Amino acid sequence: MAFEKLFERHSRRIYNLLVRLCGNAALAEDLTQETFLTAYQRLSDWRGVGALSTWLCGIAVKHHLAARRKTHFTQSLDTLELSADRTSDPLERYTEREAVLALDSAIAALPDSCREVFILVRLQEMRYREVADLLGIPLGTVQSRLARATALLQNSLSPLPQKGAERHAL
């Protein structure tokens, strides 16, 4: 009963993390189930240090890394969560949706190592040290991968010059 509540409370976050990491909704569902199965089997291993959600994210990332080592999978995001509509203006909703799609596409196109760090730090709001420990990499590597991911995203999301803009500037 208590584990059911744990699952209900954290499964959505774990699924969203995994779908962003692997870009595949079906695989994310499988890995979410594996994450909670592992958590159930190893609940006695959790020492109470740090947040339980961080421990669960760590298990999820380890399952993702294991799956990535076993197979190569395509980078397609099958699901997209949009924030609740804040306006009834269809143009504004369309623009917001396009921005979210562009961002998700840009994140999915990042190299695996940069994407993992970006998602864990920026989207899951984990501390650099937690990510370093989780991925088994030095703290400086987390920082450099995050900087590279940010630069790549800024580059890919920068607006393209409009045709004829040069003529109007003259």
Rank of each mutant, 00 (worst) to 15 (best):
L52C: 09
V100Y: 01
C57L: 00
L134V: 05
Y40G: 06
D85N: 11
R20G: 03
A109Q: 14
L6N: 03
F73A: 07
F3G: 01
S105Y: 05
S11K: 08
T35N: 04
E116V: 11
A66D: 09
Q41S: 13
R47D: 15
E125F: 03
F36Q: 05
Y94M: 12
V142S: 01
L139P: 00
E29L: 11
Y128L: 01
H72L: 12
R12M: 06
L52P: 00
R115M: 14
T32N: 02
T95A: 14
T150W: 09
L18W: 00
M126V: 01
L43N: 12
A28N: 02
A60R: 00
F36P: 00
E4P: 01
A132N: 05
P90I: 11
S76I: 12
A106H: 05
R69K: 11
R42T: 08
A60M: 02
F7T: 04
A132P: 02
F36T: 00
E29V: 14
E92M: 13
S144E: 06
L139F: 13
I107L: 08
P138E: 12
R68G: 03
L31R: 04
L21Q: 03
A149R: 00
Q75E: 14
G48C: 08
T141K: 07
L91K: 09
F73G: 05
T35C: 04
L37D: 06
T141Q: 09
G50E: 06
S83W: 07
D104G: 15
A108K: 05
I59M: 06
R69C: 09
A60I: 04
I119D: 02
K163F: 12
V131L: 03
G136A: 08
V121W: 02
D78V: 09
R122A: 07
Y15V: 07
S53Y: 04
D104L: 12
W46R: 05
S158V: 15
F7K: 03
S53K: 07
